[in-house]
Design a protein around this nucleic acid. Structure first.
Lengths: 83, 83
DNA sequence: TCCACACTTGACATATTTGACAAGTCAAGG
DNA sequence: CCTTGACTTGTCAAATATGTCAAGTGTGGA
């Protein structure tokens, strides 16, 4: 509910993606390789660092590659907003 | 896990947004009005019908306006994939 | 019939994501 | 040193999301 700013939202979600990826022991290269369709490590990097505002479908493909649900990946309720 | 196609994903999420909006008794106009920043009913319509692939921040703003979490709004696990 | 409301659809300009490639940083190891 | 691996950063073209306006559809009420 906290009405997070756009740039903070992107950073929070990016960090969540990064944490999930690392917890699975994947590198960004691994992740990009597992994603459906074409996907460059460049994009992984940009999304993880919050420099880009990914689309729903992109988030979905990342969630799939990370073997978690979209819902889990975007569960930012309990996130420390320590940006 | 079912590896939904892009167009189906957009329709499923769109429908979920519509259902959530209607359950709150909002019209598309109400919703657009409650969304942070500029937002047109045109966009609500396009997103609900799955004709557009919304960005993370757009989804977040919609979730806020609907008073649900992003995670809830994108919980499509239990969705009938009856497209 | 006429009007208002809710929603859809088309077109358009602008901004931005995506995808692709090249180059740069930085750390660990040979 | 030098190389390799992981990641970042820049640029570019193409596709598309967003924001805006205008017009169209359908429904229900006065």
């Amino acid at each position: 509910m906290s009405s997070v700013e756009k740039s903070d939202l992107l950073k929070i979600v990016g960090k969540k993606i990064q944490e999930t990826r690392e917890s699975k022991g994947f590198t960004q290269v691994d992740l990009a390789g597992k994603i459906i369709g074409e996907f460059d490590t460049t994009n992984v990097s940009r999304i993880e660092s919050g420099r880009t505002n990914p689309t729903l479908y992109t988030l979905y493909r990342i969630a799939e590659a990370l073997e978690v649900s979209l819902s889990e990946l975007l569960n930012i309720e309990d996130c420390e907003t320590e940006i």
